[in-house]
Design a protein around this nucleic acid. Structure first.
Lengths: 178, 178
DNA sequence: TATTTGTATTCAAAAAATTGAATACAAGTA
DNA sequence: TACTTGTATTCAATTTTTTGAATACAAATA
């Protein structure tokens, strides 16, 4: 799995608590290329800590449970660097809408059109979110760190744009057909 | 999960054996929107059969194990139709290359460039495969069945095209950056 | 004839992800 | 003050996926 490596990569940029990482995955930069639930993240952090890849500093909170700020250990950094130099795998595609394409003839065309419209709106909204995220990124610095972030966000933006464009294409094809 | 529904959708088009479905998922039309291993498919077919969603006819093979040709039962078809009318979820993205973008500054830029080149080639090859698949699809019939198949394949083609284009964009940005 | 490739299915263990919570308290809103 | 939202972590059961096989034989190739 690579949730492990994704967490290491996050912590390579800055030290964070489980909660902060989970938020990143939910709304922030992480949301454009990795999905993981809060529980998954907490479980994995605990495991990585146990394996000595990361360590934490417990920050006492006023009257509540300690906040654990995790950072990479040298061992964790080494593992991350090793992993980064290995070839990547494209994300696994499991697309419900493809299944609809296989058996869509079993339901009324309006149902298909409705779903395409829904998906179009969904991807357009996601696109908007990604564009907003872009504005929060540090700009124009000569650091490759920032360049890479921009490229990944570009990837996410293109992806959503492509979905919107395809939905339009599909909707038009169905309109012309029927 | 929706491997279940994907299998039902395949069997709604034609009756197939586990082996034939697995081949579809590996190389054929299925490969553009759903990933599943052979074992997963056999296990799921057995489960669906046990639940009465599909049934099989055992075809005795010369000297080898029977081939099981599965078909949808009316119950299975009903479940599929119900499922098809529910809103779809976009595929879950877990993209290793995004992780590289997060922590790519920890490795030499050449390593990043090499990986982008590798991925470009990989997606270009996949694109070629998808384009070949297009030629095997029935064309121009007025059946919505065929229209939908074309649209899904279009989605898969656009996806790979977009990857190739982004790799080029990223490679260029890195080259300009120095 | 020996080896590889293709057809066809099954088993089992381990890893990972999902689902659905519970706990605890602060701060802001109605 | 009651309610909701946000911060922060943890537990447990179940479902899904992945990994790595074993079995069996036909047909094609070397």
């Amino acid at each position: 799995m690579a949730l492990k490596h994704t967490l290491l990569a996050f912590l390579a940029r800055q030290s964070l608590s489980g909660y902060e990482i989970a938020k990143e995955f939910e709304e922030g930069f992480g949301s454009c290329f990795w999905k993981a639930s809060q529980q998954q993240i907490y479980a994995e952090l605990a495991k990585l800590e146990q394996q000595g890849e990361i360590s934490y500093e417990a920050i006492p909170q006023l009257g509540r449970l300690d906040k654990k700020i995790y950072s990479l250990t040298p061992q964790g950094q080494q593992h991350l660097v090793d992993w980064l130099q290995r070839p990547t795998e494209p994300t696994v595609i499991r697309e419900d809408l493809g299944v609809m394409g296989l058996a869509g003839h079993l339901i009324p065309p309006q149902a298909v059109v409705r779903e395409l419209g829904r998906r179009r709106a969904l991807h357009a909204e996601k696109l908007r979110q990604m564009q907003t995220l872009t504005t929060t990124l540090p700009m124009g610095s000569p650091e490759s760190k920032d360049l890479y972030m921009h490229l990944i966000l570009r990837r996410a933006i293109r992806y959503q744009e492509d979905w919107v464009a395809w939905c339009d294409e599909a909707l038009q094809a169905i309109a012309q057909h029927g």
